[in-house]
Write a protein that binds this DNA or RNA. Structure first.
Lengths: 336, 336
DNA sequence: CTGAAAGCGCTTACAG
DNA sequence: CTGAAAGCGCTTACAG
């Protein structure tokens, strides 16, 4: 039985094949300038010994690790709650990384200690680049890493000044289309349940609502949630207290919209007859709510893929645009 | 602006502090045998230069990477579908790894090429150990890595002979309790929707059903699904064709149970009056189905945590039991 | 096309 | 307690 620490090295392969370590290295790395007979002798020796290059040794000289970190500044519970947002991001990133033969290191944390670990890990050059999803507030870490020369791309337009390239979706355009749809269908008291106001997604969606309402004579009616189902249910209750006559609500996430629907139903309002509801996300399940949810579709999987693609370009030394904004789209179903 | 490749090395710190590299290394790694004045001089230099040890260089000599791989032999789409199984495993693993200050490398793949990458990556010693979740059929990779001396722990009792330590739940005990519950409540024609028969979870749950029925005079009525909602709906339809009089069904996963409920409702059967339904998993959503689902609870988060704990023990050179089996428990709600 | 040699940035016996 | 030196396992100019 072979031991853990007796794995064959380049040296062993070179000896068996009767060539130098340099030559073995060239063959293993597919350099074209090795003569055919030597090449196959080396291949045989590699095969026979089951040689696999040591990653650390290779990284030390090439300065590459072929892996990248995806940082989710959230607790793992949040990341893997029933909200499919993060899973979709991970899924999209993973697709592109697979295609590029890079590995994915997943870092989830919402603690200060965890964040420090992220910093140490990434600046120790364990990874070739770092992706941030869904940062809260003004997050200094992406900028810091970027200044250290580390390839970084973030998801969502950063709050505050930042030179870090980002990928985002057109929150405002999507929300305006949603609110316009409510206006066009004759709704007069249009409320909103906004997302957390320390995140761009929360801020921009509220801004979109306000912007579209501004053109009409309707006043705004606002409650704020945190993107969870429960917060949507609670916020809906508040809105109905604020304005029992409201006849429409734009909700800044599908999950909150589900919560809002539960509340409306409990209070005996018909959807959409009494109150029209529009969500934001277009999660799969929103097709199956009762009634099916009218919502703004944002391409989350594609967002993940684009993040990864941009980062791979930065790593390859290519120029990337400072921002990529993916389109959103109103999907009309039965709830509004 | 500092450049990517100009990060300070041990050498630089040593020069600034006026000591040898060995001493800096000792201070950085917290060795106790460095005199206090020197220690603080080194600390200052580290601070001033923003020194972070290079991970590859360190790994090369220590043979440790402080990261471990979690291999999910499934497509990313499957892992991040609406099935919360994998997310919970990841969550549990991540919790324990965080506590141990190790990083998580996530590898998802159901392609041959992908599997080869997993093999190369892990045997290249990119990670200190490997966790496998939910293998299909007789999977040779865990055993191979184990024989190479790589720390490995798998989730689910391996099919075929294997010396690799595993963590599993008590499928059979849980299923027997479920079927017994159906028998005790006077059900006479008890069908089952089994899981995939190339996975231990599928095989054992069917075995538990058969074992418990054997003690009674009931015959078995079996359909097979693949743990998805859709397959549950289809299988339920088949079962009702096979035996229109059936009055109970044990379904080997909650998601399939949800599918079965949809079918039963479409065909006008009342639950539990006409047909009692029991699931397996106890996902959160199963509390909210109509009616709330009676099901066998398996501790998935804990399974993930235990996997990580066992692996960390193996890595630390401790002895671990060849198998850890976590208990399952029948949770009676309204559906049966 | 091939090899000898330097070097990537650390850790760790070994001496003193 | 501290340092000089060897060595971890590779890659890559540089010569030839």
């Amino acid at each position: 039985m072979s031991q853990a620490h007796e794995r064959p090295t380049l040296e062993a392969v070179a000896r068996l094949a009767g060539v130098s370590r340099a030559t073995v290295s060239r063959v293993v790395n597919g350099s074209p300038k090795v003569a055919e007979p030597i090449r196959s002798a080396v291949r045989r020796a590699v095969e026979e010994l089951g040689y696999i290059p040591n990653a650390a040794a290779r990284s030390l000289v090439t300065q590459r690790t072929d892996s990248i970190a995806l940082v989710l500044p959230e607790s793992a519970s949040r990341v893997f709650s029933d909200d499919p947002f993060f899973p979709s991001i991970i899924h999209g990133v993973s697709q592109e990384l697979d295609a590029a033969d890079k590995q994915l290191v997943l870092m989830m944390t919402n603690t200060v200690g965890g964040y420090e670990r992220v910093e140490r890990y990434t600046t120790a050059r364990h990874v070739d680049g770092v992706l941030f999803a869904s940062t809260h507030g003004v997050d200094p870490l992406p900028g810091q890493l970027h200044r250290l020369g580390m390839p970084v791309v973030v998801s969502g337009r950063p709050l505050g000044r930042s030179a870090v390239p980002y990928v985002d979706v057109d929150h405002i355009g999507g929300v305006r289309a949603a609110v316009r749809h409510l206006l066009d269908s004759g709704r007069s008291r249009i409320a909103t349940i906004a997302g957390p106001q320390d995140m761009v997604a929360g801020i921009d969606r509220l801004a979109g609502y306000r912007a579209e309402l501004r053109g009409s004579d309707r006043r705004s009616i606002v409650a704020v949630g945190d993107f969870t189902r429960e917060s949507g249910a609670t916020a809906m209750r508040q809105l109905l207290e604020d304005d029992p006559q409201l006849d429409a609500v734009f909700v800044a996430s599908d999950l909150m919209a589900h919560g809002a629907i539960t509340t409306l139903r409990e209070l005996g309002r018909r959807i959409p007859e009494d109150v029209a509801v529009v969500g934001f996300d277009d999660f799969d399940i929103s097709r199956y709510t009762d009634p099916p949810l009218t919502t703004v579709r944002q391409p989350i999987l594609e967002l993940g893929r684009e993040l990864a693609r941009q980062l791979l370009r930065v790593i390859a030394g290519e120029e990337v645009p400072p921002a990529v904004v993916l389109p959103t789209e109103l999907v009309v179903r039965a709830s509004a």
